[in-house]
Design a protein around this nucleic acid. Structure first.
Length: 492
RNA sequence: GGCGUCGUGGCCGAGUGGCUAGGCUGGGCUCUGCAAAAGCUCCUACAGCGGUUCGAAUCCGCUCGUCGCCUCCA
């Protein structure tokens, strides 16, 4: 029987601002859409955190046996740099600066995006559609919204009429805004805008002569508005109403608000049942953003080539660091924080490695079923990975006690214990064991030999030689660990 | 100015109206030839001020502060 039948998940829904019991539209199936990146520069660590948060959601839902269709877009159409709807689009700007084609920009950073997410062990989504691949769908939506009188055309551009929409619907339902109030609080925009109201947003923009990325439409040669692509692609692949929509907290307004308005305007149904927002990763107490220069690239963490960190960290240690914080909490990225996480991560991996040393007995002194249930309870409660990890450290303690024979475990319990640990650590948390402990390689053979020689020396009470072996191996980054059952080692 | 978020022990980071996660660091002990590793153990916190309650860090109000959004942004 699928695990989802016995596990009830609660999800914090941004729409209701409360945790709700998750019930998919179709039993056993989940449709999930997450707003992907605009590929105009290297993906930074803050972006990675958001996608990794949803990777955890994807992984856990799959673990429970749900058939998940996970759609995450690539924004490869240029969007304007400000809401005055003036100026250059980001991809075209980058193309001009680097003297390459816009699509070369897109290709370069799409590859970087995939490469980085793969390093940190995110699963690829089920569908990864691009904005430029769905221009026709976007045009159809605009036509539909125009027909319904909720958009207007001016000079070849089309804008969504927020005030008109707000007469029958609530624009601001997600972000808790009141459109009447925000009208009074809106600053005067610089320059002349074609829009009837500052709150209106573009569905289609006419391209000026210099604009490279352009497509024909009934209104002008131009390009779609930013918010529209997500509506087009999410509804195309997941339906007019689907289960989960995710994204970074910073997209809540206006992006997701606009998505709701567009979708509601076109289909007249609630587009999304559960809105999930991953919180920001901050650096030096400030938001990490490409536009401000306050950011760190994942590769700089892995290579150690940056001013912020004391040393390089592996992708798994970095991922573990993220998993130790809840996805809805702001996470401050610091070198000391990462170092602490790395130590804990190594401790966890070493315990998992040594689990095969456990000798089973007839009865168990540990309640494995109760422990296992605590792991599921943690994840069922809005994907609480920090609590799950706390439980995994409890398992580490069990493992060490079992090896020391201070606790006992039965054959069947041990099998269950191992399977559960592996499932949560590798499948759900998506950690990888990148600690070098390949017992089949030559180095291990050499170390084993030295361990044996040291044992002989110790048996002869030749402490000078035994310590020399130990210390010189330590200098090489190989640590010997003397236990009751003999000596083991780990390589740093 | 508006909307929202958060404010937890040396640090990071969970959390529930009463039984007080976890990681890292530091102290003690066990083990060890000595260490390390491992185990046990100690340091017991919830921004401030009021209120509700038998009882609040957890609920309400106010104050202060943080961060985010209000303009592209994961």
């Amino acid at each position: 029987m699928e695990l989802y039948k016995t596990n009830q998940i609660k999800i914090y829904n941004s729409l209701s601002k409360s945790k709700e019991i998750f019930k998919p539209l179709v039993e056993g199936k989940v449709g999930m859409y997450v707003c992907g990146p605009t590929v105009y520069s290297n993906v930074h660590l803050g972006n990675v955190r958001t996608f990794t948060s949803f990777d955890l959601v994807f992984r856990y839902l799959k673990h429970l046996g749900f058939k998940v269709r996970y759609v995450r877009n690539i924004t490869d159409a240029g969007h304007l740099e400000n809401d005055a709807d003036e100026g250059e689009d980001r991809i075209a700007k980058k193309a001009r600066l680097e003297q390459i084609e816009p699509m070369e920009v897109v290709q370069r950073y799409t590859v970087d995006f995939h490469d980085t997410l793969q390093k940190i062990n995110n699963l690829p989504p089920s569908i990864e559609p691009t904005a430029t691949g769905h221009i026709i769908e976007q045009i159809e939506i605009i036509k539909d919204i125009l027909d319904k009188g909720l958009a207007y055309e001016i000079n070849g551009s089309v804008y969504f009429d927020v005030l008109k929409y707000n007469e029958s619907q609530h624009y601001g339902i997600l972000s808790g805004r009141n459109i009447e109030e925000s009208i009074h609080n809106t600053r005067e925009l610089d320059g002349q805008s074609e829009k009837k109201n500052p709150q209106d947003f573009a569905l289609w923009k006419k391209a000026d002569d210099k604009h490279i990325m352009r497509w024909p439409s009934p209104w002008s040669d131009g390009f779609p508005g930013w918010h529209l692509e997500c509506t087009a692609m999410s509804t195309k692949y997941l339906g007019e109403t689907f289960d989960i929509h995710g994204g970074g907290m910073d997209l809540k307004f206006p992006h997701h608000e606009c998505e709701i308005a567009q979708s509601q305007a076109k289909n007249n149904v609630k587009p999304v049942n559960y809105w999930m927002h991953a919180n920001m990763l901050i650096l030096n107490g400030q938001k990490m953003a490409k536009s401000t220069g306050n950011y760190i690239l994942p590769n700089e963490i892995f290579t150690g080539e940056n001013k912020i960190l004391s040393k390089p960290f592996t992708p798994s240690a970095t991922r573990f660091f993220m998993m130790q914080a809840h996805y809805r909490s702001i996470l401050d990225f610091t070198s000391t924080g990462l170092e602490a996480s790395e130590k804990g991560y190594i401790k966890l991996m070493e315990a998992i490695h040594s689990i095969d040393k456990i000798v089973t007995t007839k009865e168990s002194s540990i309640d494995i079923q109760a422990w296992k249930q605590k792991c599921y309870d943690a994840m069922n409660d809005d994907f609480n990975s920090p609590i799950l990890i706390a439980n995994l450290f409890e398992a580490v303690k069990y493992i060490n006690l079992l090896i020391d024979k201070k606790e006992s475990i039965s054959e069947s319990d041990l099998t269950d214990f191992k399977n559960t640990i592996n499932a949560f650590v590798f499948d759900v948390l998506g950690l990888q064991n990148d600690i070098q402990q390949d017992s089949s390689n030559k180095l291990s053979g050499v170390v084993e030999m030295l361990i044996n020689m040291r044992k002989e020396a110790r048996d002869n009470k030749d402490w000078a030689l035994s310590d020399k072996i130990r210390d010189e191996l330590a200098t090489l980054g190989i640590q010997l660990k003397d236990g009751k059952e003999g000596t083991t080692f780990s390589i740093n």
